[in-house]
Design a protein around this nucleic acid. Structure first.
Lengths: 187, 187
DNA sequence: TACAAATCGTGACAAATGTCACAGGACATT
DNA sequence: AATGTCCTGTGACATTTGTCACGATTTGTA
């Protein structure tokens, strides 16, 4: 577990043993079962999560109680309701396990403590954040420029494992189409 | 000009005069006329831009030569093709002035030099990047959950000035609908 | 095993959106 | 003033997508 987090960080920057021990002390390791909820819309969001293993969905529920999957959070990813986490407001989304999942949690206080005490980690987080922004913009582009079928094919090419672990209904919700439309893509 | 950049940064962190002088030395001030192009798809992206005044569009052109506006870049914003800028690859988008525009440019080398030499600026950039990600995710949510009419109303409420300076055709391109559909919204 | 819930495909129809064509008006240039 | 370009609205029609309903299958669980 620890070595996985360390390897993840060291893909971007390098750390001494002492530095990593300190980093680790600011995180808490937690385990959740499938269908467990890490936070729900309306609650305070106490943590940002690094996913050691498992799979989660970040979901926004609209006024008609339709679920929209903003993101599938996979191994080696970071996830939270970042708006609520950073701005210390109530969550507008919920985060739920689709599989048994292990995560390293960090509080906002510890997030900034981490930046203050290990400047290299701040560099790491900056690069992660930049990449996160780029990924989100790619998703915007995909929604602007392609139809449901092309988006489905993009998603499955990039994350074939989702076919095993996520229902078609939920894939449709991520792609922004109804489950019926997704079903009719296979012709 | 300088005081505007300084005020922008000092909304998030505070700087001494010496620190700001150093920061400023890593930027270059440039002016562009309406319709001028800062970079085009296929080119190397030399800079990230802080917009002092003016308005630009970040555009992706698909295989059928349709323009998709990824972002309107406004005063007090940062803009670039961040994927190409950070990964030093060819641009997939172009950045074009919709009005006469003044920007502070920074190269990638100077971006990291800035982080190295003024840690507070790295904190600033991290917070900016986090906010950029949050904004992009909001846009994804808007595309997933609302129809063209609602997206139009959201956009105009948040940026009423766009109505003055941007054609309906370009608003449609940002919203992800045809200009005809946008035209028929006003009934 | 047996029951309940979730999942999936599909038909029928409605609603939203795209595409094409045309015309008038605003605006800049010559 | 004449010209061309861009922008805008609109009608007609095609395509895509959503919604509702139904039944079959799979899955989870008592």
């Amino acid at each position: 577990m620890e070595s996985q987090l360390r390897a993840h960080i060291e893909k971007t920057i390098s750390l001494t043993d002492q530095e990593f021990d300190h980093v680790l002390s600011l995180f808490e390791l937690n385990h959740f079962k499938k269908k467990e909820v890490l936070f729900e819309a309306g609650q305070k969001v106490e943590h940002s999560y690094y996913i050691v293993s498992g799979l989660l969905k970040l979901v926004f529920t609209d006024k008609d109680v339709n679920e929209h999957i903003v993101s599938f959070a996979m191994e080696d990813w970071w996830e939270s309701d970042f708006q609520a986490f950073f701005m210390e407001t109530k969550a507008s989304m919920s985060l739920t396990c689709l599989e048994d999942t292990s995560v390293y949690c960090i509080t906002l206080d510890n997030y900034w403590k981490l930046c203050d005490s290990v400047p290299k980690l701040e560099r790491f987080l900056l690069k992660k954040s930049n990449m996160g922004f780029i990924g989100a913009q790619q998703r915007i582009l995909s929604l602007l420029t392609t139809n449901a079928k092309e988006r489905y094919e993009q998603l499955i090419n990039q994350n074939p494992e989702l076919l095993q672990s996520v229902s078609k209904t939920q894939l449709a919700s991520y792609l922004g189409v109804s489950r019926e439309t997704l079903s009719r893509i296979f012709d």
